[in-house]
Amino acid sequence: MLKKIDPISYPLVKQFYKMTRYGGAPGRQETVWGWYEGSQLIACVRIEPKGEAHFLRAMVVHPDYRGRGIGAKFLAEVMAQYEHHAIYCFPFSHLVTFYTEGGFSLCTDEGPQWFLQQYRRLSRQRDVVAMARITSKD
């Protein structure tokens, strides 16, 4: 079940990321979404507003729950919360198919300046790709 996580619980999100061997912690400007099975947090993602767009960061499914389709359901439900907003992300290259199936497209040379600059810097250090999900506003 999808749930928006209250900022007071961000220390628990940081623990979740650490437990799943993912670095980082949510910032105050970010909205954090969790996927729960009962009362247990099993997936997490951070969405940072960036002007007219949003930046998807740190989507992680607990290793014990991977391969069950939870990530795809989780991504779809989170994206439904932003259905009229552009969402950008830098997934690891082995996740291109996953994000493509979730409505994202490769966009190495397209996007806002902040996104392209961050991609150029990050792609020198990690095996990531630039992707976006652009929707039209009604």
Rank of each mutant, 00 (worst) to 15 (best):
M1W: 13
K4N: 06
D6M: 03
I8N: 15
Q15C: 14
Y17A: 01
Y17R: 04
K18Y: 13
M19D: 13
R21I: 05
P26Y: 00
E30I: 05
T31L: 11
W33N: 08
W35N: 06
Y36H: 03
S39C: 12
Q40D: 12
L41C: 11
A53P: 06
A53G: 08
H54D: 14
V61A: 09
P63L: 00
P63H: 03
P63C: 00
Y65S: 08
G67Q: 06
G71S: 11
L75G: 10
A76R: 09
A80M: 07
Q81N: 06
Y82Q: 05
H84V: 06
A86G: 07
I87D: 01
C89M: 14
P91N: 02
P91C: 01
F92L: 12
F92I: 13
S93C: 09
H94D: 13
V96S: 09
T97P: 03
F98K: 06
Y99I: 01
T100C: 11
E101L: 07
E101C: 11
E101S: 08
G102P: 07
F104D: 03
F104L: 03
L106D: 05
C107F: 05
T108W: 15
G111S: 01
L116P: 00
Q117E: 15
Q117N: 13
Q117T: 15
Q118F: 02
R120E: 14
R121D: 10
R121I: 08
L122T: 14
Q125L: 06
R126H: 15
V128H: 08
V129M: 08
V129C: 12
A130T: 00
T135E: 09
K137W: 12
